[in-house]
């Protein structure tokens, strides 16, 4: 099987048929604050020398290759790619990330609505 980006896209295209509706135009840079945060963390880590931008593009490319045709899960895939990068660099383990995610859910559950959520 052709595993290049072009090959993957050709398969997406074949699966979608002749109709490939483009997503509606959106002028907003980030659709939610978490998207801005995960983007900024990636840029900051790159600028601090944690990884080259080519390495990042390859990792991101692998994660977005199976994404939704309209790109609506783009930043979800981005977050997955960053998590992989942190695991591979030994910066954080899967367990670290799951534990910290649980801690945030628990913090939210004890914070009255409208108050800032803090760990």
């Amino acid at each position: 099987m052709d595993t290049t980006a072009a090959g993957t896209l050709a398969r997406i295209s074949a699966a979608a048929g002749a109709e490939l509706p483009l997503p509606p135009p959106s002028e907003q840079v980030f659709a939610a604050p978490w998207q801005a945060q995960v983007f900024a963390m990636t840029v900051t880590l790159h600028e601090a020398g944690a990884f080259s931008w080519s390495e990042w593009a390859r990792t991101l490319g692998r994660h977005v290759s199976g994404g939704r045709p309209d790109g609506s899960d783009y930043y979800e895939r981005w977050a997955d790619a960053l998590a992989e990068m942190l695991r591979n660099r030994g910066i954080a383990t899967q367990e670290d990330m799951e534990r910290a995610t649980r801690a945030w859910h628990e913090a939210a559950a004890r914070t009255p609505h409208g108050m800032p959520i803090e760990l």
Partner: peptide, 26 residues
């Protein structure tokens, strides 16, 4: 009483920031 809730992505990204901040990387 009403308590807060975070979406899965919001919580995951906050978790990454917590870990990276603890390590002094961001």
């Amino acid at each position: 009483p009403q308590y807060s809730e975070l979406s899965e992505m919001d919580a995951r990204v906050r978790a990454l920031e917590t870990l990276l901040t603890e390590k002094g990387l961001v």
